[in-house]
Design a protein around this nucleic acid. Structure first.
Lengths: 342, 342
DNA sequence: TTACAGTGCTAAATCGGTTTACCTGTACCG
DNA sequence: CGGTACAGGTAAACCGATTTAGCACTGTAA
């Protein structure tokens, strides 16, 4: 392995000091009163040997790694991977790299990952938090790290948060089902105390109560397989034959629900109308196509990285507490169109 | 921001040398003849203050960052994100983190990303290469970096490669269509010289020739939108009304193809039978469900990381050239079942 | 008594940058 | 001529770990 040239090697070759080379490479030639002749010849030499600075050494000295730690639920989930993609791209433009990790919504994994990220000296954090890591995040804040939470957050923490209007999105979806002649509308959700799930539940309940309907709620445990979820939904549908509309609180619950509905040979939307929370590229191509509450993924990602970058480059290191709520959009497709009551 | 404790701070507190602390923290106490009493009290103190070593400093000194650079085509693509997930998990177990970046199959982006990863001193590379970066990878090899290519590779390079049997997979898919009574079978593929696409083409051609069928090939440029692709496929189908079977060479081509077929109101599989290359969780839920050539994603990911880890921990730094070809599996669903010729 | 081995521990160099504090020489001013 | 300002640079400390070489002491055998 060829030994890589260092700034000192360059200095030696050109018979100048390493300080000078460093100044020039950092564009401080003028500020530090290096003659433009010398500047030019150093830059020329640096280019000619294809020098690349060692970022590790730089990080050690400056205390800045230009790395952002990101914790998502599952990087293979289309929602999170779409966000990761945009965040990575924006960060790249600012010279940052991302350490991305999947928590699987497991608090112990999340805690361990935060620990690793701290050892790695990341400059800031983007986290879709699991339950039970409130204290760990509090410690990050106390140590003055920029932290942006997204998708869900802890109301008690002084973080910057970027979420969607889960309550409104769920309300609109249920209301849409009601307007399409559904009167026994169920919510299939996760057994989860996370704020985004609570809000989807709240939106559902608000609409149910406003219209004096009966509530039907199925709570599915988090770590089940697709088949197990489909089985539970199947049983639920069988137990409540009156159901004529369902809001699925997540993307993959909708997928499992479709499976169950197929098993029972119910037809959509005639027997039962459905809407999913969180849209999916494929929903438009199912037949019938699936209605969904779409989250503004690009806008979310950009807000997340924008907020983090602002904190990272801020002189003022005081913590900011701010929650940005982005609107959802109900995309009506075939699965929920049954002609309105009128 | 609380100043984090360093190994020197610990040494000062305990009135021992930093050397001693370092030895103990690295489990070399016995080897370096540190008394077990001292070892215990250092470990105790370290635990009590929740000390975390600075990995940056460690990396600078040892020359190992324990970071792997990974280049995929698009981290938001389900194929790549599924692989990224497994690779990340395995790497984590060995104490490695991953820098993941999307090349968008753009050679300039890929080159720039490799440069960044080098500056960041990553220990090894996992790359789904784009065209035109053969030379850049060659440089990595010359500098003795472990490099594992996957999904596609350059036959001329001394890398370790993990790919699937693209030729066989395509052959089987076409053969399956033929056995299901298709006689005008098209291949819808990308305008790409990459080896995996060439091999899918070869598999198609082999089966077409063996059975003396006519070849119909549509090559779609790489960077089109879903709508543009659907439009091209629509025109192609219109121009060749005799077609009764299609193999789509990628996941998203199949999706765009479905759109085109819907537009033309053709019924699947009666009018036209289809098979996609690369399976998708949702294909089973379409109606009709979509047949696909499934790639062994878990096996690929594990091979990739296993090969890289072996090279990383090898004493012997000589380059290994090896290509692992994993089998694909044809998953027959409704979209291609039309009763055989018999 | 000397020499040698082993025990227990540490000083200092090192990795490759950045940054602070200062040095030397020349020009200019009054 | 003395003093000041500025141009053009550099030496050395520093970031926080690892690692090499070796020091001081004790015990033991010749």
């Amino acid at each position: 392995m060829k030994k890589k040239a260092s700034i000192h090697d360059i200095a030696r070759q050109l018979k100048v000091s390493a300080t000078t080379v460093s100044f020039i490479l950092n564009g401080k030639a003028e500020e530090k009163r290096i003659s433009s002749g010398l500047e030019k010849s150093v830059l020329e030499y640096v280019r000619s040997i294809g020098f690349q600075r060692n970022q590790i050494a730089q990080s050690l000295r400056t205390g800045k790694t230009k790395i952002i730690g990101m914790l998502v639920e599952d990087i293979a989930d289309p929602f999170f991977s779409a966000i990761a993609r945009i965040v990575e791209e924006q960060a790249y433009k600012e010279g940052y790299k991302i350490f991305n990790s999947s928590t699987e919504n497991d608090m112990h994994k999340a805690k361990a990952l935060i620990r690793v990220l701290r050892e790695r000296q990341v400059d800031g954090y983007i986290i879709a938090p699991t339950n039970g890591i409130e204290a760990d995040i509090q410690l990050l804040i106390e140590d003055n790290f920029p932290v942006v939470l997204f998708d869900r957050y802890f109301p008690g923490l002084a973080t910057q948060n970027v979420v969607v209007d889960n309550t409104g999105g769920a309300y609109n979806a249920v209301n849409h089902l009601f307007e399409n002649n559904c009167v026994h509308i169920a919510l299939v959700t996760l057994e989860s105390e996370q704020v985004q799930m609570q809000n989807r539940l709240n939106g559902y309940l608000r609409c149910i109560n406003e219209n004096q309907l009966t509530q039907y709620i199925l709570r599915i445990p988090y770590n089940l397989t697709h088949e197990e979820r489909a089985y539970l939904i199947n049983s639920f549908l069988t137990a409540h034959p009156a159901l004529d509309g369902i809001l699925f609180a997540t993307n993959y619950l909708a997928i499992s629900g479709l499976e169950a509905i197929q098993q029972l040979s119910l037809s959509i939307p005639e027997d039962i109308a459905i809407v999913g929370f969180d849209d999916n590229t494929h929903f438009a191509l199912f037949s019938p196509s699936i209605s969904a509450v779409a989250q503004p993924i690009a806008a979310m990602s950009e807000k997340v990285i924008e907020k983090l970058m602002t904190r990272l480059s801020a002189e003022d290191k005081t913590t900011v507490r701010e929650t940005i709520v982005l609107p959802t959009q109900l995309i009506v497709r075939q699965s929920s169109r049954r002609g309105s009551i009128v």
